[in-house]
Each structure stands twice: as structure tokens, then as C-alpha cells.
Nucleic acid binder design. Sequence first.
DNA 1: AATTAGTTAATGAACGACCATTCACTTATA
DNA 2: TATAAGTGAATGGTCGTTCATTAACTAATT
Lengths: 204, 204
Amino acid sequence: MAERKNRATQQELILAVSSRLFWEKGYAETSMKDIAGVCGFRPANIYNFFTGKESILFEILYREMVDIVVPIAHLKDDESVNPVEALRLMIENHVKLTLGEKRSSKLLFDVGLNNLSPANRKKIIRLRDDYDAIGVAIVRRGKKAGIFAKDVDDKIAVFSIGSIIARSRIWYSPKGKYSVDEIIEFMFRFALRGLGGGAVFGKR
Amino acid sequence: MAERKNRATQQELILAVSSRLFWEKGYAETSMKDIAGVCGFRPANIYNFFTGKESILFEILYREMVDIVVPIAHLKDDESVNPVEALRLMIENHVKLTLGEKRSSKLLFDVGLNNLSPANRKKIIRLRDDYDAIGVAIVRRGKKAGIFAKDVDDKIAVFSIGSIIARSRIWYSPKGKYSVDEIIEFMFRFALRGLGGGAVFGKR
DNA sequence: AATTAGTTAATGAACGACCATTCACTTATA
DNA sequence: TATAAGTGAATGGTCGTTCATTAACTAATT
């Protein structure tokens, strides 16, 4: 008979397995049986650790969003950081989380929100709003400092940069031409130029 | 008793209804009952016009992809069109199709591919490849002409621009601050600058 | 113009499969 | 011995799809 594991261990196992399956196959296409199968026990046992399928999804999305926001939260109000450098840090962190380890081709994030209860959805969206606010603050400071072009819209710019990163999950392949670091470099340059701050590096 | 409609009419009705529902709720989350309900008949009747749910999805994705690619296909090899102008045409067409009329918040396109049979998926991907090839050709010509920066990667640039547009479905609201035309203008400028061609317009 | 035959849109009922979840239970561990 | 990990079986539901049948249209025939 299989040995018993403790609560925390099994919760993390379920989250790790579910995360992989959700990102790979999609939320609706992943069954509790799938998850339990990979974990090595029966579906019913999942309910000893989570109240239901949705709560698993929420926990995954929430943690991921926290990982994206928390490391850059200090950039929002810190006037001492160069906006260009702040932009780089923001992109670097986001891309690394998006393309690192996991390797998946689905946009769980954009799509999974609709599978959450309104209350849970709100919590995720609040974090997404934080992310946007950080980006907007950086762009604003950059414009004020004369580094970025004044005619770019803060919000759309941040959405655009976020979109470039989020959707790289679809086309990126670890076996491809570029490393994650090179992609970060490209996206940073593209975003910086897009913001009108391209004068930093010459045209090559 | 409800009057009978002819074949072509009902096929188009089913496609229109399904398209709206798929984009709004997602493919897996939309049932044949949902579709039939909106159409005004019973689910079984759908099978008089389509072989199954997947064939409806395919038809929708295929048509949309054709709409995106065909109007800009001529830009691929036409050396006479200014690369900057070609870029604008490409973005304009794509954004208009993405944000025009439909109004939906899901990324059916990125996600729905996995619900297709391998054969059908291949047909869609072929069109997506065409789109990429057109974009790459434009960027290459722009670099050759000295308008775009030489250090940008053609492919990633096209992916990035496409991502900005595709994902605008999520955040765009017709009731929001900007019109579709203004968003086109922003994205064009952002993309152009990102490509290193920002010198076209001064910094404001 | 009336009748008929053929076609096909539309239906109701049923199919098997799978789904998330519940619950009484067993069993291992601390 | 108390706690909690793990199970088997069952529940009610939904899903996509099939199929025999009905009813409304079209076109040819009388």
C-alpha cells in the first residue's frame, strides 16, 4: 500500500501537477481524474485538500500573479530607480516567470479567469491592476524625465508590453534559436524603443 | 410551427451564433445546446449542417484567419510599397478585424487550436505562417532600406506586434477612452518605434 | 390548377461517456 | 487511540452525437 504523505506535501503536489496540466491542456480539458492520476491517488482524495477544482485554479493563478507583482512592487514609487532600468527589471522578471521552467503553450491566465467565482476573480484582477499601475508609474516617470516620448499612452503601452510577454508562451521553444535571456533583451529593447526611448542605443 | 429556412441561411446562422459564443465563453464552455438555443432550434438539427462541434470551430477560425491574411497578402512581395506604409496597413487590417463589431474578451484563437484535429490545425497554422511571413518580409525590407534598426529579430518582432494586437481583445472596450482608429494609431507608432523606425516622427 | 413524389429542415428520445462531487469506509501514522 | 490520508461506489448532471420520424418546402407530373 502506498505510504501516506502529510498535508502540506500533498497540497503542493496537487498544485504542481494541476498547474502543469492546466497550462498544457487547459482548465476545462483537465479532469480531477487526470490530476489524481498523475499524483498517484484517486480523485476523491483531492477533496481532502481542496474544496473543489476551482479553488485549485484560483490558488495557481493567485500565486503566479503574486510572483509577477511582488518582486517589482517597489518600482512603483521608488523615484531613485532610473525608469529605463525599472522597465528592464519589470520585463526581466515577467519573462523569466513566463518562460522559465514550466514550458507550456496555453494562455491559462487570460482564459482561466472566467472559470473563477466573481469573488476570486476580483482578487486576481486586483493584482493585475497592481501590475498595470507599476508599469504606468514607470512610464510616467520616464516621460517626465524626458526619456520616453510624451505622446505614448501610459496604459496602452503597459498593456502592449505585457501582451508581448504573456503571449510569448505560445511561440517560445527552449529548443529554439534564442535563450530566455536573449528574448528578455529583445523585448526590453523593443519596448524601450516603442516608448520612444530608443535613443539610448544607436542604430546598428 | 416555425418556418423552415434554407441550408445556406442556417449554416451561416450557426456560424455566426457559435462564433459569438465561442469568443465570449470559450469553446469548451459552449455547448451544442447553447448554440441551438440561440439559433432557435434543437441541438440535433445542427448535425444536418455540420458534422460536429469541431467542424464549426474550424470553419470559424479558418475564415477569420483568411480575413486577416488575404487583404495583406500582396504586401509580402510588393517592393514598391514603403515598408512603413506596409506596416501600417498590416496593423490596421488586423486591429480592425480584432476589435471591430464582434466585441469579445476571449482568446479563442490562441486556445482553440488545441481543440482541432491535427489535419485542421495544420490548415490554420499554415495561414498563421503566411501572416508571419508577410510581416517578416516587411521588416526585412525596412531594415534593408535603412528605416528599421538592423539589430531587431524579424520573427520575434512580428510575433510581438501580433501579440499586442491579438491580446487587445482582452482589455479593449468600445466604451473606453479610445476609438479603434486611435488604438491603431498607437499600435502603429509603438511598433514602428520598436522596430527602430521612430525617427519618422519627432519626440513630442 | 391540383396532385404527387422527392427532398430536407427540424424534432424527441435515447445513447454512452465523462464530469465534479459526496460520503461512508478503511487504513496508516503520530 | 485520535487524526487524517486515502478509497470505492454512487449521485446527479451535462456533454456530443445518433437515429428514426415528422413536417414543410420544391419541383415534376397529371
